[in-house]
């Protein structure tokens, strides 16, 4: 996983240095959040909730799948094809770490402002 770093490296690790580029992206964070909450989510539900085109959502899902954060299962219900997305254990960990870092960032900002 790639870390996004700032221009200058502070002496103590800033929460930003631990951010995962794959997860630290608004749409992908939305996908992980919804999938975590739903346990299992259908492609169409994600598309409507995140207001994305099918192509754009597919690209983001591919990134997450390649990183091993989600599992994609394709099947049929009647004649209709359906794609279900689940979070892998690595995905759960990555999401929790991201939330933790965001909270650290908020704490950092509040400390700096104070």
């Amino acid at each position: 996983m790639t870390a996004v770093t700032g221009a200058e490296e502070p002496e103590l690790a800033h929460p930003v240095t631990g951010l995962d580029e794959v997860v630290h992206q608004r749409v992908r964070l939305g996908i992980l959040t919804i999938t975590h909450e739903a346990r299992r989510v259908e492609f169409g539900y994600l598309r409507s909730q995140l207001e994305l085109t099918a192509g754009n959502l597919s690209k983001h899902l591919s990134v997450l799948e390649e990183a091993g954060l989600i599992g994609v299962e394709k099947g049929y219900e009647g004649r209709r094809g359906r794609t279900w997305i689940t979070l892998t254990p690595a995905g759960v960990t990555a999401l929790n770490e991201e939330i933790g870092r965001l909270k650290q960032l908020i704490a950092r900002v509040e400390t700096t402002d104070g």
Binding site: R26, G30, H60, L102
Partner: peptide
């Protein structure tokens, strides 16, 4: 990707995640 509001504020992002 503009499905979530394009705010950089992590507080806003966490709030968006809660809303979802």
């Amino acid at each position: 990707a503009n499905s979530l509001p394009a705010a950089g504020d992590p507080r806003r992002l966490l709030s968006d995640m809660r809303t979802l």
